[in-house]
Structures are given as C-alpha cells and as structure tokens.
C-alpha cells in the first residue's frame, strides 16, 4: 500500500490565551519571560492530522520542522512523544526579526533541504503573531497548491486528497492534487496525548547546542542511538540568501506597539433593586434608546 511523507510545521509560542496583568510591561511590550512557551495550539491539530495519515497508511513518516531560538527543540521532542518520526530545528540569529515573508522563505528552504514530501501540514494561525500567513506563503514559495482552514483530511485517493474546510459560514469540501500544503484549524480533532513509551525513548533527544550541558555520562548514547540526535540547521545549512532573512528580508516593519487601553468611563453604578431598574428603563425609553 502507498505511504506518504508528511512534514508538519510547528511553532513554539508564548501562551497568549491567559495573559495576566504582569505579562504586559509598562512600555506596552510583552514580557515573554512570564508566559509559558507552548506548542502552538493549531499546530497540534495539524500534527494529529499527520499522525492519522500515518495510522491509516503504515510506513508513512511524519517530520517536524520548527524555526525558533535553541529552546524550540522542545517542540520537536513534544512531537516525538506523540508519534512523529523525526524533526529539524532551524535556528540562527539571522532569522531574528523575520516577518511572515522572511519566515516562509526560511521554512521553504529547509523543506527543500529535507527533500521529497507529499503533504505539508501547518496550523492555520500562530497565537502570537496571529497572521495566518505563513502557511500560504510557504506553499507559494514551494509552488504547491494550498488548502487552508482544513478540519479534516477526509480521504487520500490515487493522486488526490479530499479535504474538508471550515469557513465562517459553513463547510466546503475540496479535492486537490498533491504535493500539497494544508493549514489546519482549531476545530479539527485535538492531538492525541503523549505516549509513555515514546517519552522514554525520546526524553534525552537533544540538539547539539543542548548537548553542551549534558553530563559526560550520557554522551556515549548519542552514538549508539542516532534518533536521539535532533538535527539543528542554520542559514548555511539551508543555503538561504541572507538578504531575504530577518529584518532585511522583511517588507513589513513594526513601527509601534501599544498596550490595549480602552477609553475608561465613569460608570454609574446601580443596585439591582426595583427603583433603580425602573428608573433606568424609564430613562432609556424617554431618551429613545429603547422603544
């Protein structure tokens, strides 16, 4: 039976869903240090779709690709614990300050280096940059079609995949040739949990930079068990043009960032007694807000 090569794009993001007061600095910038770094939620949905293809077509492989600081290697381990086969960390100071165009350029170079693929699965949107642009831009750079807002890969036929999309006002099912890039929404099935055996297998999987801090006693393991070596690539490894990366490769610039402040009003506080509410209703009727 057929098997497929799948690449999952996953980003490590600060958890912006529960931002407390201390997460915002005085100057309106975000204090990343106090927010936990997590696997971007919709990238977990994408990973699950990839793992389902692998369940259905044994012999398929799931490869993670993440670009970020050295600690983003955590994302690869997290994916391995859930059933991915391997993963690459793309890290280099030259990537800093990349907008979505420069990010997608770097990711597309890395994908070319990884080699053949049938499917690239990405999250629809990352919860920090919030743009939802990287998926389609990677597809354009690789010259493959895209299906965004996917909720399920329904079927894979001989040379076509059938994908159901979740749009604002309904659902749409499309059929596309592959290789193909698919972005997956949060309404897709949640990712399976970590697998205890895989945690045992991969908990010491590290990149070369992480290994600088590993005690001597363990170093021998990496020769015996190559799967514990998480490949780490820099700009040279992916043969990228430096001027298309980072700030110089980014047409968009952040001119200003502000904390969200709403025009505070002095609310008139009313108790919930009969008189107050009757007064308010009369007021709304007489000034024609109601009726």
């Amino acid at each position: 039976m057929k098997n497929f090569k799948i690449i999952v794009l996953a980003k490590q993001v600060p958890d912006t869903r529960n931002v407390g007061k201390d997460a915002m600095k005085e100057d309106g910038t975000v204090n990343r240090a106090v927010l936990p770094a997590i696997f971007n939620p919709e990238d977990l949905n994408a990973l699950e779709q990839a793992l389902r293809i692998k369940d259905k077509y044994p012999g398929s492989t799931v490869t993670l690709l993440t670009m970020g600081p050295p600690r983003a290697a955590e994302i690869i381990r997290e994916g391995l614990y859930r059933g991915a086969d391997n993963g690459y960390l793309l890290t280099d100071r030259a990537f800093a300050g990349s907008d979505t165009l420069a990010t997608s350029y770097a990711l597309s170079r890395a994908i070319m280096k990884i080699g053949d693929f049938d499917f690239i699965l990405a999250g629809r949107q990352a919860i920090d940059g919030d743009t939802a642009q990287v998926g389609p831009q990677v597809a354009e750079k690789l010259g493959v079609p895209q299906v965004t807002y996917a909720e399920e890969i329904v079927d894979i036929k001989k040379n076509k995949a059938v994908v159901r999309r979740r749009l604002e006002k309904g659902v749409e099912t499309v059929e596309s040739v592959f290789p193909l890039l698919i972005t997956v929404t949060g309404t897709a099935p949640a990712c399976r949990p970590r697998n205890a055996k895989l945690i045992m297998k991969y908990k010491r999987a590290t990149t070369i930079s992480e290994r600088q801090n590993v005690s001597e006693d363990y170093i021998f393991m990496y020769d015996d068990r190559p799967f514990l070596n998480l490949p780490e690539w820099n700009v040279g490894d992916i043969e990228a043009e430096p001027e298309r990366l980072g700030l110089s490769g980014s047409p968009t610039k952040v001119k200003k960032v502000e904390n969200v402040v709403f025009q505070a009003k002095e609310a008139k506080v009313l108790e919930a007694d009969n008189q107050s509410i009757e007064w308010l209703m009369k007021e709304l009727i007489s000034n024609h807000t109601l009726g």
């Binding site: 609310a267 506080v269 009313l270 009757e278 209703m281």
Partner: peptide, 26 residues
C-alpha cells in the same frame, strides 16, 4: 470600566425586572 451604567446584581434577577419595568413604562 467601559460601561455607562453598571447594574450590580445577578442576571437572573435583573433581566426579569428590566422586562417588567419596560412593559409597565412603554
């Protein structure tokens, strides 16, 4: 902080009162 009127109370008590006094006064 952005409200013009803040009614301090439970929804399940306040809404029936609003309905009642709206009906009586319109």
């Amino acid at each position: 902080k952005i409200a013009d009127y803040a009614i301090l109370g439970n929804v399940e008590d306040v809404i029936p009162k609003m309905i009642k006094y709206y009906k009586e006064n319109s």
